[in-house]
Design a protein around this nucleic acid. Structure first.
Lengths: 353, 353
DNA sequence: CTTGGCACTCTGAGGCCGAGAGTGCCAACC
DNA sequence: GGTTGGCACTCTCGGCCTCAGAGTGCCAAG
């Protein structure tokens, strides 16, 4: 099992487990509390409702089920979902044709990783009819490919950085004195000649540590180089961020119909820090991970589940993707979709480099 | 008045207009249908409720008011809001201190126009507690500042374009044959030397029309230049787009509490084409424009109003910004905020160039 | 034209009732 | 001892009624 079992569950009767499984499946399908009569019919065990009732009462005592009120059926608790997912759920592999459809949509040519993230996020949300999320983390190793300096006005210079395979970043820096286009060009040429293909961490260290202290002895070119480099490589250039798509799907699922809950959830999407924290945790677990309700650590995720998977290229984790939806979601379908999408995205990134 | 009067309204009694004004103001404040007794108290005219009732009945006949049901008070119709905004509303200028606060938030240094759009959009939504929108349109005149080609793999080249003041664009193009870094560099140098500062339209025409037909006679460098340029300047590089912020505010206003309406609205934000169409219309009206409900041309905007203003630099319209909220919004506050924000954004862009 | 009076209408909250669904418990059964 | 049918009990939900409150429209008088 790719997701780690969290709760520790006392031994449950084979039959009891089966009944829990059927109940959860039924509830995920219908969204209605499941009564003993219904469960008796569905379970295929040839037991009377009365027997079922006894089992259900036990499951309620153990915290796997609860009833909304006396005379409704039962509904799984978070603990119930947990056991279901850890031990009872069987996840069918995705149909070949479906994999193909996913592959085709991911393999379309894109301009940059942000656009790819958006595409994949759209895809996840479209296929699952939930909210899709793709995170692009801060990479540990960022390779400098090319740098360019353009004078904007008196003391402002536009820096264009090409990183990794094809990531383009630009920023504006303030300089201590005006630089001519020629000076800037020479500085860029020097940096490109010297450091293209090197890790940006390494560039920073080599350049700044070695040269800064001897600044006064440097010729004019190298002084330019140092001043530019100081600001260019100052902060880690690839920020950690994510892309959400299909939030509106969440407005359609009956479970989250409470407007206020929904608003808080949407605000969390914009706020980002909570979710980034969650995804950071997933970065180094391999395979699909599932968080049920407040297991995710944030109270705004009440009633929601998060299904995530990291994607890796050459063993290095590049990011996490996943979906957010109501806890009552079709895990048997969502899990393989998330899993396969992560693999396909990894493959696409691999080809691209 | 900056917004254009749309409906043509028959002569209304001075007193009748005053009563409509007070009613709309009251309704905007409370959100409750206004009855004759309330209006009589609020209007300050020393009239009895019975008289007010007669006037209200007239206004209803003329289509300015309606009652939700027999024994509720009256509510303005779209037509009523229209008249209110066109002729009755007085818009107080924004407080100096408030303008200063806005200015300070807009004048913060930013990296590129997309980031600025986001900042301003956030600002609009924060100040008005509605959804803020900033559109960056396709500019008519796009100036090439700098171009750079980097070989990625066999037949793929990364193009980095610096446009206008500081806009950086990048795209990947497929080439017919592999090019070396040196070749690409020469081609870029040629283009920069020849065309930096020129309009991109002009570059395209000059280069492609004049040279393409004589391709066979060109030297190797110029052949490279032509192939690169063909794809680099093929499509209009600055896409029309907008940024929405603070959508969640719309979930809090009682008027739009219908989940389904809200969902459709949010989907419209993602879909973009409807709203882009609307904003295109605003591009060349000067000053604040207001669309009430379906005046905006899209049925998803039922119950919503849109307040927009274009922002210009040196007489050239650069884009449109505005807010979307329930029709029952505090126009006397929203209008000056939108107006001032547009001016401040224009000023900020002007300084930046 | 304005006003007070008055009958009328409609909503919304609260209370009541009955149907339906499901439970818990118990005694009987295998 | 696990399983079962029976049965009383509880709770929700929709329909129905009622009543107070708010606001209207109309009319006749000022």
């Amino acid at each position: 099992m790719p997701w780690e079992p969290v709760g520790n569950h006392p031994n449950l009767n084979e039959r009891t487990q089966h009944l829990l499984k059927v109940l959860v499946e039924r509830y995920i399908r219908d969204g209605q509390p499941v009564g003993s009569r219904t469960l008796a019919r569905d379970a295929g065990l040839d037991l009377s409702p009365a027997t079922i009732r006894n089992v259900m009462a036990d499951l309620e005592d153990l915290g796997y089920l609860q009833s909304p009120h006396t005379s409704a059926g039962r509904v799984p608790t978070a603990r119930g979902y947990r056991l279901f997912i850890d031990a009872l759920l069987n996840v069918p592999p995705l149909d070949h044709r479906e994999v193909e459809i996913l592959r085709r949509r991911i393999d379309q040519p894109v301009q940059n990783s942000a656009e790819l993230a958006r595409t994949v996020s759209d895809l996840l949300s479209g296929v699952t009819r939930l909210a899709g999320i793709v995170m692009v983390p801060r990479r540990n190793v960022v390779t400098l490919r090319h740098v360019e300096f353009l004078p904007l006005s008196e003391n402002r210079v536009l820096v264009v950085l090409v990183l990794n395979a094809q990531e383009v970043q630009n920023r504006i820096i303030q300089t201590r004195r005006p630089y001519s286009a020629v000076e800037l060009n020479q500085a860029a040429q020097y940096l490109n000649g010297q450091f293209a293909g090197k890790g940006i961490q390494q560039v920073r260290e080599t350049l700044l540590r070695d040269l800064r202290e001897t600044r006064d002895n440097l010729d004019r070119l190298m002084q330019t180089v140092v001043e530019m480099a100081e600001q260019t490589f100052e902060i880690d250039p690839v920020g950690e961020d994510y892309v959400v798509a299909g939030q509106t799907h969440l407005m359609q699922c009956a479970d989250l119909s409470d407007l206020d809950t929904l608003r808080q959830l949407f605000e969390a999407f914009n706020h980002k820090s909570d979710l980034l924290h969650l995804f950071d945790q997933c970065l180094h677990a391999d395979g699909v991970q599932i968080f049920i309700g407040e297991e995710a650590g944030s109270s705004v995720l009440q009633g929601c589940s998060v299904v995530t998977a990291p994607y890796t290229v050459e063993g290095q984790v590049l990011g996490v993707l996943g979906v957010i939806g109501p806890t009552r979601m079709a895990y048997d379908r969502v899990i393989p979709v998330v899993e396969v999408t992560a693999r396909l995205l990894a493959a696409a990134l691999n080809d691209q480099d």
